[in-house]
Amino acid sequence: MLFDRMIRPALYRLGKNDPEVVHERTLRALGGLAKMPPALTALRRYFGSDDPVTVFGLRFPNRVGLAAGMDKDGRALAAWAALGFGFVEAGTVTRLAQPGNPKPRLYALPESDAVINRMGFNNAGADALAERLATQGKPDIPLGVSIGKSKAAALAEAVGDYQASLRALYPYADYFAINVSSPNTPGLRALQDRSALTELLAALGELSGSLAERAGRAPTPLLVKVAPDLTDSALGELLEVCDAHQVAGIIATNTTLSRDGLAGTEAHLGKEIGGLSGRPLAGRARDVVRFVHEHTGGKLPIIGVGGILGPHDARLMLDAGASLVQVYTGFALHGPGLVRSIGRALSTG
């Protein structure tokens, strides 16, 4: 593809082969594009696909979404629909603004179609995202917001920390992703345990109901994002908690701590700490989606994410039980043509 042969190499030359610099420059360019309505209209005509579907009460123009992590602070929200996405998930944001982990913290592995990151929820904070949405408005596709725990907040303070983010962003999000599964914030994955998750979901559900009642509308859907590294028994317990607290859906999966599937010349990067995404995660992500679908009798909607690098991967994810799919690594490595090809393949069956 043109992106792989020419555009990506040029981006990396300009970014001195630093994936985080490339990411920042790309986001800055898309933020500028978001302020040019005629250009957005032209791009949407080329990249867009029409495959409307309703999931957890929301109508999506197509099934392909942008996963959290690409546009944490909502800097380019208007651009994503123009590039063919049917929904976008901002974040992960935290109550407190935080710089994230020390650099370098992002590694592109093109031979493996993979990325390793240990970003650590670098973001400007929930209040900053709320202010941007209040002044610039929402995109015209469904907006999810992924919320996580601030690194400075102890696990004992996690509930209040998540509640603050939910409260700040409640007027703007079409759904919330409760991120308890990133491997890059110490202790975060402990929130997937039955007792901790029960406390968190009970508190967030109660707050959501109260905020919705005050606004005179239905509660905003709450989804839980799970790790691919959970055992079946642990995942089964998590799903029981989600069912008890009427969670609207599951996002499966986050990045993995496994290093299986790296290409030989890139295997040495397996020593880098962080979460692995992309092609090596594809099989395990589908297994988790299939388990969730079967364990819940197909009653709990699933957003499938992990290793989707083309239409075939997306179709396999839907066949496993997902209602929607998200891409991140595939977009980062192969560009918007990937979104167009997936969206149009799914829309034609």
Rank of each mutant, 00 (worst) to 15 (best):
F87V: 11
F87Q: 12
E89Y: 03
T92F: 01
T92P: 05
V93C: 08
T94D: 09
L96H: 14
L96R: 15
A97R: 13
A97P: 14
Q98M: 07
P99L: 14
P99N: 11
N101M: 12
R105N: 14
R105P: 00
R105I: 10
Y107K: 04
A108N: 13
L109T: 01
P110Y: 00
P110F: 04
P110W: 00
E111Q: 14
S112T: 12
D113F: 13
A114Y: 05
A114I: 08
V115R: 09
N117W: 07
R118S: 15
R118T: 10
R118F: 08
M119W: 06
M119S: 09
G120A: 13
F121H: 08
F121Q: 10
F121G: 09
N122K: 08
N122V: 07
N123Y: 05
A124I: 07
A128P: 04
L129G: 03
L129D: 02
A130I: 01
A130C: 06
E131W: 06
E131V: 05
L133N: 00
A134L: 02
A134N: 04
A134G: 15
T135E: 11
T135S: 14
Q136I: 06
K138F: 08
P139L: 06
D140V: 11
D140K: 13
D140Y: 07
D140E: 14
I141R: 03
L143P: 00
G144T: 10
G144M: 11
V145D: 04
S146H: 10
S146E: 09
I147M: 09
G148P: 13
G148M: 12
K149R: 15
K149M: 12
S150E: 04
A152Y: 07
A152I: 07
A153K: 07
A154D: 14
L155V: 08
A156E: 15
E157R: 13
A158R: 06
A158I: 11
A158G: 13
D161I: 05
D161A: 02
D161F: 00
Y162Q: 03
S165T: 06
S165I: 03
R167D: 13
R167F: 07
A168I: 01
A168M: 02
L169Y: 02
L169D: 00
P171M: 05
Y172T: 00
D174I: 06
D174L: 03
Y175M: 14
F176Q: 08
A177C: 14
A177W: 02
N179W: 06
S181F: 00
S181Q: 03
S181M: 01
S182W: 00
P183H: 01
N184S: 07
N184F: 02
N184L: 02
P186D: 13
P186I: 02
G187C: 09
L188V: 10
R189G: 14
A190Y: 06
D193W: 09
S195G: 09
T198R: 15
E199R: 15
L201M: 10
L201F: 09
A202D: 15
A202E: 14
A203W: 04
L204A: 01
G205F: 01
E206A: 15
E206T: 13
